[in-house]
Write a protein that binds this DNA or RNA. Structure first.
Length: 277
DNA sequence: ACAGGATCCTGGGGGC
DNA sequence: TGCCCCCAGGATCCTG
């Protein structure tokens, strides 16, 4: 499930393959996408040069060069989404929902997504602020201050894991890295957010950044479906401390990792290292 | 008002 | 062995 480290890995893979190329055609379908493709987006895209690729939270933003600087092709990988750059003669994988032709047929950017939780859409510059606005997407974890996080945490009775998963609080955390960061911070995922002391909030913020930095260095986690580049797998799944390890011994204290359900998500924690209080 | 649940979707894994 | 059911989850909408 691509979260921030996986999306960052994909962006780094795409940059040398896409930046500077020209979009010469778009083919979408035949199946309906989660966000239906608007036919008039084609006219906005064809002929444009792909200028710069960057990540915001779990979103991939492929910005388009002039005339309307700030327009972008926006991709969210959802659960099983994948972006690849291939030569047209290479057979297309099943569940390829969108193909963007580049440089008059020499290459193409493909979007495949078996589970179709992903999104792909054209974002005009005029709507840019809406995505960036804090009502939809909070700061990048490295920009989040302890004060910011404390302000969000102290006003809700949601469990702390639900707060970490809330993209408005900070952008990019999903189920895996929420569990891993809470273990790193030695906080129980079910703690009511407003019961966290200031030093615990600070510990959590620093744990989030540490876990994400480590995961990016390992090219993210590959579980079933995440690949980047040409079938390259991330390695961070080998570093998991709690995620998916229920019944296995804690690497720190040897107690058995527990599993429960919080915020509608499978949740993994060490009952000893992450005591409730 | 706010928190938790339902929803979408499919491949894969477990159980019988 | 084979089949069926259920489960995984990001974001959004719904319910109590």
């Amino acid at each position: 499930m691509p979260e921030l480290p996986e999306v960052e890995t994909v962006v780094r893979m795409l940059r040398p393959r896409l930046e500077g190329r020209t979009l010469t055609g778009v083919r979408v379908g035949p199946r309906r996408l989660r966000v239906p493709w608007q036919r008039h987006w084609n006219a906005q895209l064809v002929g444009r040069r792909l200028d710069h690729i960057h990540r915001r939270g779990k979103w991939i933003m492929i910005s388009l060069a002039r005339p309307d600087s700030g327009d972008a092709l926006l991709v969210h990988l959802g659960m099983t989404g994948r972006l690849t750059v291939a030569e047209p003669k290479t057979p297309r994988a099943p569940h390829t929902h969108a193909v963007f032709h580049l440089d008059h047929g020499k290459h193409e950017l493909r979007f495949q997504d078996p589970r179709r939780f992903g999104q792909i859409r054209y974002l005009p510059a005029s709507e840019h602020a809406r995505l960036q606005g804090t009502e939809t997407l909070g700061p990048e974890p490295w920009q989040l201050t302890t004060n910011d996080l404390a302000a969000q945490v102290c006003r809700t009775r949601r469990c702390i894991k639900a707060v970490l998963l809330d993209q408005r609080v900070l952008a990019g955390i999903g189920n895996i890295y929420a569990d891993e960061a809470l273990f790193e911070a030695r906080l129980h995922p079910g703690r009511i957010a407003l019961t966290l002391a200031r030093n615990e909030v600070d510990r959590l913020r620093r744990a989030v950044v540490r876990v994400l930095d480590r995961a990016i260095r390992k090219h993210g986690s590959t579980i079933l479906t995440f690949y980047y580049g040409d079938d390259e797998r991330g390695e961070y799944q080998n570093e998991f401390r709690v995620y998916g390890r229920q019944g296995e011994p804690c690497r720190r204290c040897r107690a058995l990792i527990a599993a429960t359900r919080l915020a509608g998500r499978g949740t993994h924690y060490c009952p000893t290292c992450q005591a409730v209080s």
